[in-house]
């Protein structure tokens, strides 16, 4: 992983974007990295968008807000479209939910569709768990954080009644990520 990664998780309210961002942040801290996070959701965010920006770095972070997006994790078409303008000029990475986002062509940007919602419904019978599927898949694809830390971060931040399904979702996401990586 290069020194600083600016990650934007974005979707609409209710998709668990903020929880996914929070768990990513805690997880990266458990890996020993430096992390800064900021969120916009509810009334603050225009048009019902929920967003969580996480900066993950190997060293203490100089400027803790996002300057441009190195890694975009998009949970909806609107969120995807809104966020393209902020993509970093070099080596930006886009990861999107392939059921909810129809990506456009972006020269020089690697875009990867993850069947997060699709598999959350089919394998787990729980659409709500798509955020954790997406998170674990993105972690594998980007090297942002380890699966072990993700699971520990989940245990500390998930409501007890969702813990079991979220654990399964992380495992499923990891699988999906590993398969996508092989391609």
């Amino acid at each position: 992983m290069s020194n600083v990664k600016q990650v934007r998780l974005i979707g609409f309210g209710g998709q668990g974007v903020v929880l996914a961002g929070t768990i990513l942040a805690h997880s990266a801290i458990k890996d020993g990295r430096w992390v800064a996070g900021s969120s916009a959701y509810g009334a603050q965010a225009r048009g019902g968008t929920a967003r969580y920006d996480v900066i993950v770095a190997e060293d203490p972070i100089k400027f803790p807000h996002m300057i441009s997006t190195d890694i975009l994790i998009a949970f909806s078409q609107k969120a995807y479209e809104e966020s393209l303008g902020q993509l970093s000029k070099e080596k930006a990475l886009v990861i999107y939910d392939d059921l909810l986002v129809k990506p456009g062509t972006l020269p020089g940007v690697i875009q990867t569709g993850v069947p997060a919602t699709d598999r959350a419904i089919k394998d787990l019978n729980n659409k709500q768990a798509a955020n954790m599927v997406m998170l674990a898949a993105a972690a594998v694809l980007t090297g942002l954080t380890s699966q072990a830390s993700l699971v520990r971060a989940l245990e500390e931040n998930s409501a007890p009644r969702f813990l079991e399904i979220n654990r399964k979702a992380l495992a499923l996401g990891q699988d999906i990520g590993l398969n996508l990586k092989k391609i």
Partner: peptide
């Protein structure tokens, strides 16, 4: 300032 008060980081 508000930016530090509401900043979340390690």
């Amino acid at each position: 300032d508000e930016a530090v008060g509401h900043l979340r980081e390690r």
